[in-house]
Design a protein around this nucleic acid. Structure first.
Lengths: 230, 230
DNA sequence: AACATGGTTCGATCGTAGCCGAACCATTGA
DNA sequence: TCAATGGTTCGGCTACGATCGAACCATGTT
């Protein structure tokens, strides 16, 4: 007697109320924290933690540690497809869940995260830099490593952007930071900080008093886009 | 608090060892009986029966009653796709199950089922007649209804095939009969019987002594194909 | 250094669902 | 009519797994 087909395990994993809720919360592609997911599923953190580690073991989701948070996302597009396929079969007028994140649209658009640019613009910048191969991202063991390519070094040099690489500091040149509102990466590290300073210097943008909002002028955003987003 | 997404139910249904085994046994598109499925899953008939009715309720499989047998098949192509999707995710070198049905290839090719043609040739004939719109199939409530179209009436008339439609007999003119070896429909009813007689008459084929095998001559099969399969 | 917060591990409880034995119904064949 | 075979229903047993409280670890904040 041979052991049955292993679709059983995967399906059983999805076939639990709490886990299914968490998974569908992730289909949008966002990464969510363990506590958010536990709230979403209406269970305690302990229980959620157990579920999440099972889902990880099975390769349905992946985790990225970030400070004292752990962000979970679907492992890949295939899993998303599978879930959508399932929803198709179990089709109904499913009430869509609400989006998390900061309410304030300005905060969502551009803000400081420690000392670097976050929000829509920050994520857009990061994506663009990676896509143009000015930065290189490698994933390893729950964290993402980011490095400047030769092409990137040239690009930043021509703009006069030279991040201070004090050997004393432990701070890395580049770091992928998961964005609070968008839930995708933006650029941190000394390069990230230098780029934000660059925006201030060029008077493209300024920090709004008492908030974390970064306000770009109309012309400033145009220049930001043409210079840094290509 | 609203009730979570309903992918849960479907996934939970697939996420049981016995049910998953039965479902994967059906992905080939064959229809299998309850006992066969129970054997496949290594459970008793009672248990299998319970599982199968659940799968039916959920619309994952469909059932067709045939005499004292009940043949189960996947509900539609979407379900098959879903299962394949799942297997893709849980990919491994899954040992393939063996094919059921008669060992003897001749029996599998062409044989009598009561008084009409069954086996590969029988199924091929039925498919061809339906595809050329000489027969029309409608499905309702666990059974398939088959009727001769106007075009079909003309076709059979021209060949001199006129099934005796004794009004006394309760036997229908046409009936879709689920094929034992192929597990797809072939043609039964008085028309089916008449067609087999027609083959005997034309000396295309003859019944092999003591067996249910129908032996077509080489020329006979050629004629059978050109006359009836078009 | 103390504290708050995010997350995991452990142990115990409790429901649910899979399973089978036994009895029953339905169809077929003699 | 009676036996044989395919399937279903019912009741009770059992086991797996979801859940939570409590204790613990890690990171960041004051």
């Amino acid at each position: 007697m041979f052991d049955g087909p292993n679709i059983t395990g995967i399906a059983a994993l999805i076939g639990d109320h709490a886990r299914a809720t968490m998974l569908t919360a992730l289909v949008s592609g966002e990464a969510l924290t363990a506590t958010e997911l536990s709230a979403e599923a209406g269970i305690t953190k302990q229980t959620a933690s157990g579920h999440l580690s099972k889902l990880c073991d099975a390769g349905l989701i992946e985790v990225e540690a970030q400070g004292r948070h752990r962000y979970f996302r679907l492992a890949d597009q295939d899993v998303a497809r599978l879930l959508e396929n399932l929803m198709g079969i179990a089709e109904r007028t499913g009430a869509r869940r609400v989006r998390p994140g900061p309410k304030d649209p300005e905060l969502r658009r551009a803000r400081v995260c420690y000392d670097h640019l976050a929000g829509d613009l920050g994520v857009e910048l990061f994506d663009s830099l990676v896509q143009r191969k000015l930065l290189k991202v490698t994933r390893a063991e729950e964290t993402s490593e980011v490095a400047v390519t030769a092409k990137g070094k040239k690009f930043f040099g021509e703009l006069g952007i030279e991040p201070a690489t004090a050997p004393s500091s432990r701070r890395p040149l580049c770091k992928a930071c998961l964005d609070w509102s968008v839930r995708r990466h933006h650029l941190a590290g000394t390069l990230g900080a230098t780029l934000l300073d660059y925006c201030y210097e060029k008077k493209w943008a300024s920090r709004e008093q008492g908030t974390r909002i970064i306000k770009f002028t109309a012309a400033g955003e145009r220049n930001f886009r043409s210079s840094l987003l290509g």
